[in-house]
Design a protein around this nucleic acid. Structure first.
Length: 426
RNA sequence: GGAGAGGUGGCUGAGUGGUCGAAAGCGGCAGAUUGCUAAUCUGUUGUACGGUUUAGGUCGUACCGAGGGUUCGAAUCCCUCCCUCUCCGCCA
């Protein structure tokens, strides 16, 4: 949620930064108008209520001293009724405006951080690092991971479509074990890095999705269970973000670092043509997520260490990757700054996203009303939230199947993973 | 799914129509005092929004699970929903 007070006080600089994402002039103007109307009504309303409260007390006193049939009592009652009549017009009007204001404000994305490069779309993202050139595979005839996977008999798409739909996979034998091993491996690493593991509900309510930013704007992206106001979790970020919703945390308890393995469910609406084969873009995939609740002044630094924690997995698996900083035009809705990790996919001769590490500033904590309080100090502050994949399991599996593919059609397993599977190759 | 009980401030817990934002205790904070790793005493102690102020501040409104209703006036009465607990049923 944007900071309405900040917008009200510095509308020009606010809009200038926001417009680095696209043109939001119209809704912002509307928000400013609604905000002004709302406050105007609020002033009038609270004055009336003050008088009404006063009358309420006076009636009580008058009845005690002069009896309930005293003419003064009737006069006060009349005045009270008049106020009630006025309030019955003001209150609904204010509610409507407030609802419009909130609905609109919820569709405004977060302001990009000054450190986020300015750009229109993904073509203007900035590469900041490459790692693992020495691990680039030398095998020139690498098969795409879905082909090698089906040859090895460890994954099957056709039968998955029979069970569910296209864009689902069934893992078989060593494939299923590999997935489980990767989850275990990643959780082991991230918990060793200080993240507290949680296992949240895989169904979440609308409030949780709104808090993290998926609703109201991206309702089409998630699967909904209509009867229950529950949605299939699109990412563990949603669940962990709501773990402390409507709470006031002790400053001393921060930072809180969590990680979680969950499946993630996404409708992938509007991406019908892309990545139709393989493990890259499925309706259901596994992910180990990292999430931090931190004090505002530390979030930049926490963002860097979050990135390192994600990188550590790729490094441990000896998978070549690069790090890019998303530009303002490609930045996600809730983020102020995002690093993407892209792993090398030999069959496509391209780097493909395998982790996204974002600093969301106080955007999600405003939406979820998560604050912290310094003991002994007055007032509360919104904290900052950060999230990052550590990592997407399906894409990691795809990267392994391609980068570790041998000329004889077998797939070597990364050394770090071998103990988890009790074997050296697939 | 059926029956019952209940949701009050950081916690425990009183409060069933009128100075209740809410007693009391605990905890927290500040001070006093006692020569002993603590006791005692005193004071203080929620959040949000808005008006006003250079600021400290000050004033107002709202909040006793959520949303409606009755009333001059609701934590208190009525309705709907959500959640928790106990028992029964069902079930991994």
């Amino acid at each position: 949620m944007i900071d309405l007070r900040q917008l009200r006080e510095h509308p020009d600089s606010f809009l200038e930064r926001l417009n680095l994402r696209g043109d939001y002039s119209a809704p912002i103007q509307q928000i400013l108008t609604l905000d002004q109307q709302q406050r105007q009504i609020e002033v009038e309303r609270s004055q009336l209520q003050a008088r009404s409260n006063e009358i309420g007390k006076l009636v009580g006193q008058q009845i005690k001293s002069a009896g309930k049939d005293d003419p003064a009592v009737q006069a006060l009652r009349d005045e009270g009724n008049q106020i009630k009549a006025k309030l019955s017009e003001l209150e609904p009007a204010e509610k409507v405006i407030k609802a419009q204001l909130e609905a609109l404000a919820l569709t405004i994305p977060n302001l990009p951080d000054p450190a986020t490069p300015v750009g229109k779309n993904e073509d203007e993202n900035v590469e900041i690092k490459r790692w693992g050139d020495e691990y680039l595979p030398s095998n020139p005839d690498v098969l795409p991971h879905w082909e090698i996977g089906e040859r090895l008999g460890i994954l099957n798409f056709e039968r998955s479509a029979k069970i569910a739909q296209s864009r689902f996979v069934t893992l078989i034998g060593a494939g299923a074990a590999l997935e489980r091993a990767l989850i275990q491996f990643m959780l082991d690493r991230q918990t060793a890095a200080g993240y507290t593991e949680i296992s949240p509900p895989f169904l979440v309510n609308s409030a949780s999705l709104t808090a993290s930013g998926q609703l109201p704007k991206f309702a089409e992206e998630s699967f909904k269970c209509d009867k229950d106001d529950l949605w299939l979790l699109p990412t563990a970020e949603v669940a962990i973000n709501s773990l402390h919703r409507d709470e006031i945390l002790e400053a001393d308890s921060l930072p809180l670092h969590y990680c979680a393995y969950t499946p993630c469910f996404r409708r992938e609406a509007g991406s019908y043509g892309r990545d139709t084969r393989g493990l890259i873009r499925l309706h259901q995939f596994d992910k180990v997520e990292m999430f931090k609740f931190v004090r505002p002044e530390t979030s930049e630094q926490e963002h860097e260490s979050l990135l390192q924690n994600a990188e550590a997995i790729l490094q441990a698996l000896h998978l070549p990757y690069r790090v890019i900083t998303l530009c303002t035009g490609d930045l996600g809705f809730s983020a102020i700054k995002t690093y993407d990790l892209e792993v090398w996919m030999p069959s496509q001769a391209k780097y493909r996203e395998i982790s996204s590490c974002s600093n969301c500033g106080d955007f999600q904590s405003r939406r979820g009303n998560v604050r912290f309080k310094q003991a002994g100090k007055k007032g509360t502050q919104f904290l900052h939230t950060l999230n990052g994949s550590g990592l997407a399991v399906g894409r990691t599996m795809a990267a392994i199947l391609e980068n570790y593919q041998q000329p004889d059609g077998s797939v070597l397993l990364p050394k770090a993973l071998q103990p988890y599977l009790g074997r050296e190759r697939l």
